[in-house]
Design a protein around this nucleic acid. Structure first.
Lengths: 208, 208
DNA sequence: TTGAAAAACGGAGGGACCCTCCGTATACTA
DNA sequence: TAGTATACGGAGGGTCCCTCCGTTTTTCAA
């Protein structure tokens, strides 16, 4: 896991570990919120989230004083999951498959994000570092997987992780995009990412 | 005026004229909504808008069945005002001054829009033609004013209206931009838009 | 001018939602 | 195991969107 759930995690204080029941409920709430947002949209009610988690609203508000804090927690958790997936992918024996399946995970992540994009923008406005840090971490993960595939000769070398994300993210953001279409587009991108058949000399984008 | 306030304006039916009191209240409500959004943000309450207009909420809801309809009406009215200003500018004796002051009006319009951007995005999602039509009308207005200034030799000729809007609109969208800064930037753009001192041969962007 | 029909007005109130408060229950610690 | 710090639950206050319907105003034909 990338982050440990602690009290006063953000303030950076002594961070006494949470009581067992509190920690259990925290995790239940984040998972419940993700499900409820996915089903009812970004304007789902706090009551619905608490109910889905099998918990009272008081408990929900103890962990997340404002509605926006729930959105932020779901987002942070999604990003962490994505980074963890990349870290696990680095241990995968097949560098190409690791990259391909991580990109699929990324597309899923981005599509899930769309449902509460408005709320997320609010969170970004309140806390710009959240957006910048997350993007940087995701791009770095992509780059690690890509470099490994390139070094194994399984991906073309004239593309870097930032390029790849710049290509794939806007695709996911677009409003009218169903999962089947995104799967087709991603397949095309992956084919294009393979080393070209003839071994013409190419520039390394990382040199300059 | 670009649009006449009628009942069933959108449906395109026979459009019986509104009763005098209804029309008066409709206009009061749109003006009040603009003021209230500007002061309290895009999440201002319907009650506040009705109160500002000196009208009951029932009247507000008769004219605008849903909250989003108020947002749309304010936006349409703003766009109409902008187009009207361009039309009046076409009669202005000074083509350059007409263009410059219309661009200032555009920047004001865009800045005012920022305060309820979230709500506007909802309206665009519900009704994509609203966004496309408005943009096209605004761009066309810009182009008319620019062409006239170019034909009078008061603006450089290697830029068209679409180029100009593509330069100025993103500037307005950016979140951290105060009016003073936008005035400075616009002044710079206007200076750059003047015909260059030396009469070097230039391409006409409208040729291809 | 007048009187009746059509149209619009106003605001109480229903339902949903965010968030608070505090009595009760549970998990840690000595 | 007893005591305490911590967490839980949900009733309810305040706000907001929107509906409903009795009242008022405007319009227009006679």
């Amino acid at each position: 896991m990338t982050t440990e759930v602690m009290s006063e995690d953000v303030a950076g204080g002594p961070a006494k570990p949470m009581r067992a029941d509190a920690r259990r409920n925290y995790e239940r709430l984040v998972d419940a919120a993700r499900r409820v947002f996915a089903e009812h949209g970004g304007d789902a009610s706090m009551e619905a989230i608490a109910k889905e988690a099998g918990v009272g609203v008081g408990t929900l508000y103890r962990h997340f004083p404002k509605r926006i804090d729930v959105v932020e927690a779901v987002y942070r958790n999604d990003v962490d999951t994505l980074i963890d997936a990349a870290d696990r992918g680095m241990l995968d024996p097949g560098p190409w498959d690791a990259l391909a399946s991580w990109l699929r995970a990324y597309v899923d992540y981005a599509q899930a994000k769309k449902v509460f994009l408005n709320e997320l923008h609010e969170a970004f406005d309140k806390n710009p570092e959240l957006k910048l840090d997350s993007r940087e971490r995701i791009w770095a993960s992509c780059d690690r997987l890509l470099v490994r595939a390139q070094e194994a000769g399984e991906a073309r070398c004239d593309i870097n992780g930032e390029d790849l994300m710049q290509l794939v993210s806007p695709m996911c953001v677009h409003a009218t995009l169903d999962p089947a279409q995104s799967e087709r587009l991603l397949a095309m991108v992956l084919d294009g990412l393979r080393p070209p058949p003839e071994a013409a000399p190419r520039l390394d984008p990382r040199q300059h």
